[in-house]
Simulated scan of single mutants.
Amino acid sequence: MKYTVDAKEEFEKYVNYHDSILLLNGLKDRLDQGLGYYLLLLGLTTGLRFEELVGLVFSDFNFNHNELNIDKTWGYNNRMPTGFGPLKNKASKRKIKVEGTTMALFKDLFKTIPDNEHHLVFYNEKSI
């Protein structure tokens, strides 16, 4: 017996501009409620893959040039090797520009969160 799921319509695959602005503002309003909101904010504003987001370390943020260095991933589930890993492909290694407001929020965040063994920005007890 086989079961397939119908392909999604194009409009179901993406958040439209209006909804993305609502989401962005909602995330910014909730940043004081936990690090997960920062992760979602950065994902929304950069388009990074989840494993790239959770693999970010403090030194990947260049606040002088508003850039992120993307050169690794983090194994976040049992199907992946533990720790840092390679990107999806060679073209995935990149530096990306991030708008100043988001970078300023992270600059302020870094003053309040402790460092950890692997220097992960989005570290929690399940990271290892």
Rank of each mutant, 00 (worst) to 15 (best):
M1H: 13
K2M: 10
K2Y: 13
Y3A: 15
T4V: 11
V5L: 14
V5F: 10
A7V: 07
E9M: 09
E12Q: 15
Y14S: 08
V15K: 08
Y17N: 12
D19R: 05
D19Y: 07
I21F: 06
I21H: 05
I21G: 04
L22K: 15
L22E: 14
L24A: 05
L24E: 06
N25G: 13
G26W: 09
L27G: 00
D29F: 09
R30Q: 13
R30P: 01
R30F: 02
R30E: 10
L31Y: 09
L31I: 12
L31V: 11
Q33R: 12
Q33K: 15
Q33V: 00
G34N: 07
G34K: 05
Y37M: 07
Y37E: 03
Y37D: 01
Y38K: 01
Y38I: 01
L39S: 04
L40E: 03
L41T: 01
L42A: 04
T46I: 09
R49M: 00
E51K: 10
E51S: 14
E52G: 03
E52Y: 09
E52K: 09
L53T: 02
V54S: 07
L56T: 03
V57I: 13
F58D: 04
S59G: 13
D60Q: 06
F63H: 13
F63G: 09
N64A: 11
E67R: 14
E67V: 07
L68G: 00
L68T: 00
I70N: 00
D71R: 01
D71H: 10
T73E: 00
T73L: 00
G75C: 01
G75I: 02
G75P: 00
G75W: 01
G75Q: 06
Y76L: 04
N77S: 11
R79C: 08
M80R: 11
T82P: 03
G83V: 05
F84H: 01
G85T: 06
G85K: 03
L87S: 08
K88F: 05
N89W: 10
K90V: 03
A91M: 11
A91V: 08
S92P: 06
S92T: 12
S92A: 14
R94L: 06
R94G: 07
R94P: 01
K95D: 09
I96Q: 12
I96E: 09
I96G: 08
I96L: 15
K97Q: 11
K97I: 14
V98P: 03
V98G: 04
G100C: 10
G100T: 15
G100V: 08
T101C: 02
T101M: 08
T102A: 10
T102P: 02
M103A: 12
A104G: 02
F106G: 00
K107F: 13
K107L: 11
F110Y: 14
K111D: 10
I113V: 12
D115C: 12
N116P: 06
E117W: 05
H118C: 06
H118A: 13
H118F: 14
H118D: 14
H118P: 01
H119V: 07
L120H: 01
V121F: 02
N124T: 14
S127G: 07
S127C: 07
